[in-house]
Structures are given as structure tokens and as C-alpha cells.
């Protein structure tokens, strides 16, 4: 994609977003309570921000029509989507089957996704790292990570 096209689209999307958020601020919950407002309801400050937001978006669109065309830096869409999907799945699984049970398969899988192919190291990291983090958190740091519905404490 050309940088100019990219910036125009970005500006338009942001302009649209500011419009939608402005609509949201017209709902009654943004009127606040007169006794607490002192003339400045809850939507006062967000509306200022949204105004600047829309203005800057327009400037970006205008400027994108002025800059020289160049090819934007490309990313590998396949790899990007796969890595995001794996991480997304992992985030979801942590809430469902608990940190430890989700992290062990993720660790092995994600190293493979990133193109790592040394089974011994992968096995060692998969076995040690999740348990190590879990131990560090629930032991010395007393931060309790999500648990699975089946076992006591992990």
C-alpha cells in the first residue's frame, strides 16, 4: 500500500471514530447531576478532546494528499495473523483452564510458530518456564494467577 493511501484511510477512520464517540456523549448519562457539575457536565472534557481529535484527523487527511508517494513497509500477513491468533487463543484459555495448564502448551506451540526448531531446547523451556513463572508468582510474589476449574491452586 502507498503511504499516502494508508494515511488517508487512517485519517478517515479516526475522523469517523471521533464522530461515533461524539454521538455517544449525547446520551443522557453524560449530562451528569446538576448538583455535582458546577456547569461542567461529564461530557465537557471528552468533547474538547473529540473536537481536537476530529480536527487533527482532518489535518492528517489533508497532509496525506500532499506528501510524496512511497511504498509503505510491508509485513507478512500470514505470519502476523497466525501469531496473533495463537496469542489470542492463549489469553482466552488462561481464563478458562487456568494459567499453568494454558501456558504449558502455549510455550511449546508459540516457539514453533516463531520458527524455532530445536526439540531439546523447546522441550526444556516448555517444561520449566511455565512452572517457574507460576511458582515465582504464587510463591514469593503472592500474586495469584487464574486457576483451572478442576484443581486446587493451579
Amino acid at each position: 500500500m502507498k503511504t499516502a493511501t494508508r494515511d488517508t484511510i487512517f485519517g478517515l477512520v479516526m475522523l469517523g471514530a471521533s464522530g461515533l464517540l461524539w454521538l455517544e456523549t449525547t446520551r443522557p448519562q453524560y449530562d451528569g447531576i446538576p448538583a455535582l457539575n458546577y456547569g461542567f457536565p461529564p461530557d465537557f472534557y471528552p468533547k474538547i478532546l473529540l473536537g481536537i481529535w476530529a480536527f487533527v484527523s482532518v489535518l492528517i487527511i489533508v497532509r496525506s494528499r500532499m506528501i510524496a508517494q512511497a511504498e509503505a513497509e510491508g509485513l507478512h500477513p500470514g505470519k502476523l495473523v497466525v501469531s496473533m491468533a495463537v496469542v489470542g487463543l492463549y489469553c482466552w484459555l488462561v481464563g478458562v483452564i487456568g494459567f499453568l495448564l494454558a501456558t504449558i502448551p502455549f510455550t511449546g506451540l508459540f516457539m514453533a510458530v516463531l520458527g524455532y526448531r530445536r526439540p531439546v531446547v523447546m522441550l526444556a523451556v516448555t517444561a520449566l518456564f511455565p512452572v517457574g513463572v507460576w511458582w515465582l508468582m504464587s510463591g514469593p510474589l503472592q500474586i495469584f494467577l487464574p486457576e483451572s476449574p478442576w484443581f486446587n491452586s493451579f
Partner: peptide, 28 residues
Amino acid sequence: EFAAATLAFGALAMPLHAQDAYPSDTVT
């Protein structure tokens, strides 16, 4: 605590809160 935690690892894998007299487990 750590020693206990390590030793108790087997016990940790027990099903949730066995039906003993309260409290039989960590209180949060």
C-alpha cells in the same frame, strides 16, 4: 512456606476444597 508448598504439590492437585471442617484450605 516454599518447602510446604513443594511438598504439598501432590495435595494441591486434589479436587477443589475437600469436604472437611471449615477452613481446610487457603482463605482469600
